[in-house]
Nucleic acid binder design. Sequence first.
DNA 1: CGATGCATTGACCTGTGTCAAGCCCTGTGG
DNA 2: CCACAGGGCTTGACACAGGTCAATGCATCG
Lengths: 247, 247
Amino acid sequence: MNAPGQTISPSCSDCPIRHRAVCARCDSEELEQLEAIKYYRSFEAGQTIIWSGDKMDFVGSVVSGIATLTQTMEDGRTQMVGLLLPSDFVGRPGRDGAAYDVVATTDIVMCCFRRKPFEQLMDATPHIAHRLLEMTLDELDAAREWMLVLGRKTAREKIASLLSIIGRRDASLGTNGSSGPMVFDLPLTREAMADYLGLTLETVSRQMSALKKDGVIRLEGKRHVTIPDMGRLMEEAGDDSDGGVFG
Amino acid sequence: MNAPGQTISPSCSDCPIRHRAVCARCDSEELEQLEAIKYYRSFEAGQTIIWSGDKMDFVGSVVSGIATLTQTMEDGRTQMVGLLLPSDFVGRPGRDGAAYDVVATTDIVMCCFRRKPFEQLMDATPHIAHRLLEMTLDELDAAREWMLVLGRKTAREKIASLLSIIGRRDASLGTNGSSGPMVFDLPLTREAMADYLGLTLETVSRQMSALKKDGVIRLEGKRHVTIPDMGRLMEEAGDDSDGGVFG
DNA sequence: CGATGCATTGACCTGTGTCAAGCCCTGTGG
DNA sequence: CCACAGGGCTTGACACAGGTCAATGCATCG
């Protein structure tokens, strides 16, 4: 617990997640109201942002960086239940207690709102509630897609699924030219991947090696991944290889 | 509960799911508007209500009966991603295509709304949107809880988890006196249980037998279950045995 | 330099899947 | 009334994917 501290608030209009976050649909007047109650907080990689069961007195959006949502059983088994990327929303209006641990995987900046004022604002401005509904429905779809991965896919397919999801996200953020091989850095350790996939880190490591040996992926160092053929990867993931848009 | 088809509309005020469904928060005027666009449909056990990928021109609520939400891979592996009980909502405003198969497990009655009028109504009446957000957040929590079950629990724990969920639901519908052993009928075949739990039906069967042998449950016939000690069952499920309310 | 944290690899074990036989109902038709 | 077929379920024998335990490699950091 050292210095996760306030940062100066840049204006919402310059915000990198302006049109993807909860505030996406707000008009300029609504934005002012939000701006009045917002504040930034940053956390270092590895810090726990919220402890499951703790009182949640704020909600907010990830501005930059990555965090994970995890559940832990008494004996220590843990399952990641969500991956929070820039623009994703954290917290649940209408509930005090946090249901999951939220942990910063990289250094992270969050745009926070105290919960009560935010809830009032939500009641007053349908644009916020509407956008939140939309985002929640998307997350529900993602969670259900993940249920198929967890329940029915083999270890190799699970790894391929994770890589293709991360790859697609990076593509949608325009990091890559849309043609040619896809290249990105894994934002997760082997252990975090295992927690996401319901595997052990040894199995993750073995399957990464296997995919590499079979030419499905290339690895430089432990984290830097190249995917020469996205279609091939999606076959390995057991998905329809024809890259349907989504949902 | 026989012929699939339209049924006479009873008034919303007599509706058994009046204060749990999307319409829960509507005032009488809003209810009238909903009433104007609603219609009932019934389906027989085993019928597919919606095919994944099909155009969805309606949304609606389960009034009575049980349905499942499932995803299927090309090679036939299937995973249940949701269990729809009375008052649960089906369909996603703002999207044409269904993302999952919806199958009636028992005979079922649904209260349907054509999608477009419903969406308009949703924009006009915040009570509906608000309630839908609340329900979607609950479903998201349930999906995430299920991710832990799928990813990290053993077969025995999975079975115990499923039984305890079904048991708790039945209790919340007041079927049981809140004390004494809990008794209910399984609404699912062994195969459906397997699809829910990410197991094979053989493993489900074996673990049911094991739980029975160990006195955790009692079985009369294949479906009628008695749970003499709920705390014991929850230990078997790997959950905190102190029956905390919920999330 | 050793220490520390992540990752890889190997050897072995076990829980769950697979394949196959057979049981118990219920319903149907001779 | 019996025979029989079919669906749901149970049980057994065996195989294998993935877990467990343990050793080692490879950076980075003080």
